[in-house]
Simulated scan of single mutants.
Amino acid sequence: MLGRMGTRGAAVLAGGEGRRFKVAGGRGDKALFKIEGKPMVVRVLEAVKEVVDEVIVVVDSWERAQRFAPALSDVRIVVDEEGPRGPLTGIRTGLRKLRAESCLITPCDVPFIKGAALNELLRKLEEGVEGVVPLWPNGFHEPLIAAYKREPALRVGDLLGKLGRTRPDDLVRAGLEVEFLSVREIRKVDPDLDTFVNINKPSDLESRRPLKLSGELDSVRLRHPMELQEVAKLVEEAVAQRRASVVDDGGVLFWSALLRRVLAKSSSELIEAATWYRREAELYDSLGLRLLRARALIDAYRCLEEGGVKADHLMKEALGVYRELGVDRKDL
């Protein structure tokens, strides 16, 4: 086994069947699709087990848990506590059920994932940050192949859940100290970057080829002025008082924006929330985190639209980033 054992765990997310995944005779369950005789989820589990000693698979229903059971007889299967509400719910469920301090999160549809690459994420996490997320040189990050310290990630994840947020990106926007680790570092142990080959449909296997790097961005550390524990207290206080400005002292632009949007009682407050989101987008722009910048711009757009202000230019700008990064527009 690779790495230091005993404090490491992993949650493999298998929450959806994969709507685009169709095989002969109709739609199949993507996680159970066999590659070289093994279900995709089993291949992922084999890599994960090289670097952790506690593993769970998170699914979105008891029906799927029963369907998975024959193939995963030696793995604990847990069901999303809040049902199929998105990846962040699955991450929160996984973190809550794991006991380990350092936790990997992986999807079930990366069948060529490498244990050595996952070990790099955990090794960096154990150097003292609260999250490690792979980063491509063009500013695209991989929120579903990541490593988190369990307690801080779960605390911020639960705060996000209470406010209706479902995106995994929000974990890294909400105050965690995160190392965006360049995939160039991961390439040292996974030369073809097979870890990031995502299979959305059977034809992806036929067209599979080594992933190419474009852009010059290196690893980036996202820090915030205040410790996460103190930021979380401010968020809870702001919600209790229904006064968003309470959280501003924490210095996390995302929370200043989100709470203004959630607690808004007027168009002017929604417009103010959009201003904070645009400040957040500027922060990510300065760091080269282009996908996060696009996410913040979309949030700003929605606030302005809800406030009765046309903001098509913001959506156009965000969609331009999506196109350049190859992100599906459905992922808005």
Rank of each mutant, 00 (worst) to 15 (best):
G90Q: 05
I271S: 11
R155D: 10
R96Q: 10
I186A: 02
V78H: 01
L104T: 03
D285V: 08
G15L: 13
R4C: 08
L332M: 13
G18K: 05
S267A: 15
R323K: 14
A31G: 11
K316D: 13
R208H: 06
I271P: 02
R209A: 14
C108N: 08
E236T: 12
V110G: 01
V189M: 08
L88F: 04
D170C: 14
L213N: 09
A238V: 05
S214V: 14
K212F: 02
N198H: 15
A296C: 07
F68P: 00
R76N: 09
A65N: 07
A24D: 14
G307F: 03
L144T: 11
R221D: 02
P143Q: 04
L228S: 05
L159V: 06
S182H: 00
V220R: 10
T166E: 11
A47Q: 06
R4N: 12
R92C: 11
A264C: 10
D169A: 14
D170T: 14
L297F: 10
G251I: 09
R295Q: 12
R173E: 15
P39M: 06
T166F: 13
E151Q: 13
L163K: 09
R99V: 08
A294Q: 03
K97N: 13
L171H: 00
S219F: 07
D331A: 13
R4P: 10
P168Y: 01
E82Q: 12
E185W: 01
K149T: 07
L160N: 03
K316Q: 14
L193E: 01
V110Q: 09
R173A: 15
I35G: 04
V262S: 04
P210A: 06
F33Y: 15
R208Q: 12
L32E: 04
V51F: 05
V57H: 02
L171R: 03
S73W: 11
K114C: 08
E306G: 09
R209Y: 10
D299F: 12
R260S: 09
L205P: 06
E227K: 13
I113Q: 01
N200G: 15
G26V: 02
P70Q: 06
N200R: 14
A116P: 02
L118H: 06
F196D: 06
A273G: 04
V12M: 01
G250P: 04
W276R: 15
G326C: 08
L163I: 10
L270Y: 04
I271T: 12
R96I: 00
G15P: 05
